[in-house]
């Protein structure tokens, strides 16, 4: 029996049971934007297994600090100061190093700094609402920000989004590309949100809820939330198949 490692294969197939289907009529925007025909399944070749590389030098030192990256000198945004931290790993539990994480969010009043957001909640002159970072060697990441406020949105007559932070994730493979949202433990708006409820598996929703982590708060300063991120895993990575130093 040969004892070779499996050839560097593709990613584990996506588990569509935990993702929202394209057509979710309670989230009205999906109705005209959902493909009706089936996705065509193709295997993973190099174009799907490979993905772009982002260097630390492309990022600025305060890019992951939303309290600082838009505020005037000596000022800071209004709201609950929080740290959001965790680890990005693949489905095998291995940390993913060098991944790009981008986040965006409303301010503490539930207002986005976007030319199209006309909500009555005021803009905060010291808050931009975007951040980005590159994961460390074991996939660890952290952001400092303020807790976003909930806000009403035009869907049903009285729909409100729970407090949330949008996450855009880039693993090493283009087929791992994922955008999702992080929610906050204990928020009563989660269970009645039409966007949250596009996810058919109620247990899977729990994967998007960050845990209040008192052990990592900074006393008299900042609360901490732990949010671990998982992207599709490969049966084996390119690196595991390569001889040392190659």
């Amino acid at each position: 029996m040969t004892n070779k490692p499996p050839s560097s294969g593709g990613f584990f197939p996506r588990n569509f049971q935990i993702h929202p289907p394209a057509y979710t009529p309670d989230y009205k925007s999906s109705v005209a934007r959902s493909p009706k025909l089936a996705l065509v399944s193709i295997g993973n070749g190099i174009s799907e297994i490979a993905g772009p590389v982002f260097g630390h030098e492309e990022l600025g030192p305060t890019d992951n600090d939303l309290i600082q990256n838009y505020s005037a000198k000596g000022q800071s945004p209004i709201g609950e100061r929080i740290i959001v931290y965790g680890r990005l790993m693949d489905e095998r539990g291995k940390g993913i190093e060098g991944a790009l994480i981008e986040i965006w969010q409303a301010n503490s009043a539930g207002r986005y700094r976007h030319t199209k957001d006309k909500y009555i909640g005021p803009l905060d002159p010291n808050f931009g609402g975007c951040g980005r970072t590159i994961t460390g060697e074991d996939g660890q990441y952290e952001f400092r920000t303020i807790k976003p406020g909930p806000y009403p949105w035009p869907n049903g007559i009285n729909d409100w989004r729970p407090s949330h932070i949008h996450f855009s994730l880039f693993g090493p493979g283009f087929s791992q590309r994922l955008i999702t949202q992080m929610y906050f433990e204990g928020d009563p708006l989660i269970k009645i949100c039409p966007i949250v409820n596009t996810i058919p598996d109620k247990e899977a929703i729990g994967l998007l809820i960050a845990r209040l982590d008192m052990a990592n708060t900074i006393p008299m300063d900042t609360l901490a939330y732990e949010f671990n991120l998982v992207l599709r895993g490969c049966r084996s990575t390119m690196f595991e198949n390569r001889p040392e130093g190659n």
């Binding site: 996506r14 929202p20 095998r92 986005y112 999702t180 996810i199 998007l208 998982v230 895993g233």
Partner: peptide, 14 residues
Amino acid sequence: KIHQELPSQTAGPY
């Protein structure tokens, strides 16, 4: 495979 990929959520309007 011991973990599950996070469920996707829409990118939203912003």
